[in-house]
């Protein structure tokens, strides 16, 4: 008698357990879905705040003034002027300098690591170069401001204490690992048979690299350049520290220039009262920045996917 009761109890217990189990089984995916949707909410949050506040900004300032005039005086008490062009030139010039450093050095580094270096050398050099990517940007900012700028002033006496050249160069150094490792990945995925085919025809390594490997890997290489540019545009601390806050519309890289990112830092830390046009201009600039980097990232992914030669 007692035995049957025991079995019944057991069955009941098992039923209860499996009910609980199926409850857990059903609720877990829902819970995880909620967690996963946080990342979507983040994007929604970013886009909606930027769009909303930018909309408020363009109630006060016309699109024409923002994109075609050249004067930027956000905190001027008399007649504030809002043009993004000085910031755009600052961003473009510093990024240009950065890419002039990062593209040649990054690409040749990639070629060396993927085509020339022996496996042993590669194993040592590659992680060391990646260290450059792990250094916080604030450290690069310090380096640009206290070392590179004074050094450059030895050669270019006219160089300002803050200028676009020095942070541009340092930013380029920061981006080298990005360009190098992405380009190298692209080159590594070129099959060896192609290299061997060219070598069998008597090509030297350099010729193999220039005529076979690089053309075959070109989509990945260009994607790495584009991602590098996008990194340079969005970089904040190096330019904030070393490029200064001059809002003049100029292309002279020896002088101080403000980038979009540095402007955002200046206006937020300058306590532009919430609700003023200067405060909203922050979001208009950030929105421009966001759109630029987003487009470039999407473009990079598009070319690396679309024009990838599959072997």
């Amino acid at each position: 008698m007692s035995k049957t009761v025991g079995v019944k109890d057991l069955i009941q217990k098992k039923d209860k357990l499996s009910k609980m189990k199926s409850g857990v089984e059903k609720s877990i995916p829902v819970f995880l879905f909620c967690l996963a949707s946080i990342s979507v909410l983040t994007t929604v949050g970013i886009v909606s705040t930027l769009v909303y506040e930018t909309f408020l900004f363009f109630k006060d300032v016309s699109l024409i003034e923002f994109f075609t005039t050249t004067e930027l005086k956000p905190l001027s008490p008399v007649e504030p002027k809002f043009s993004i062009l000085p910031l755009l030139t600052g961003t473009v010039m510093t990024s240009l300098v950065a890419m002039l450093v990062a593209i040649p050095i990054g690409l040749t580094t990639a070629v060396f690591l993927s085509e020339y270096a022996s496996p042993a050398v590669r194993k040592v050099l590659k992680p060391l170069i990646e260290v450059l990517a792990g250094i916080p940007t604030i450290v690069y900012g310090f380096f640009a401001f206290t070392f590179v700028t004074p050094l450059l002033r030895e050669f270019i006496p006219a160089l300002g204490a803050t200028n676009a050249l020095s942070p541009g160069i340092v930013m380029g150094i920061m981006i080298i690992p990005l360009v190098a490792s992405l380009s190298e990945d692209a080159m590594n995925s070129v099959p060896n048979a192609m290299r061997e085919g060219a070598m069998a025809l008597g090509a030297t390594k350099l010729e193999v690299t220039l005529r076979v490997v690089i053309p075959a890997a070109i989509s990945g290489i260009i994607a790495s350049f584009v991602l590098g540019i996008s990194r340079a545009i969005g970089e904040t601390m190096i330019v904030t520290i070393a490029s200064g806050s001059s809002k003049n519309f100029t292309f002279d890289i020896t002088q101080s220039m403000q980038t979009m990112t540095a402007y955002i830092v200046e206006v937020t830390s300058g306590d532009a009262a919430s609700g003023t046009t200067a405060y909203y201009s922050l979001y208009a600039v950030a929105f421009t920045l966001f759109v630029f980097t987003l487009l470039m990232n999407m473009f990079a992914r598009y070319i690396s996917r679309k024009y990838r030669e599959a072997y």
């Binding site: 990342s39 979507v40 994007t43 970013i46 705040t49 950030a286 966001f290 990232n297």
Partner: peptide
């Protein structure tokens, strides 16, 4: 969609996240 969204978020400049934090 979620996957692309995460890839895109990884490319958003950190300062834009700062503005999100400031606003929200």
């Amino acid at each position: 969609f979620i996957q692309t969204n995460i890839t895109n978020l990884a490319g958003v400049p950190s300062i834009v996240f700062g503005l999100l934090g400031l606003t929200i």
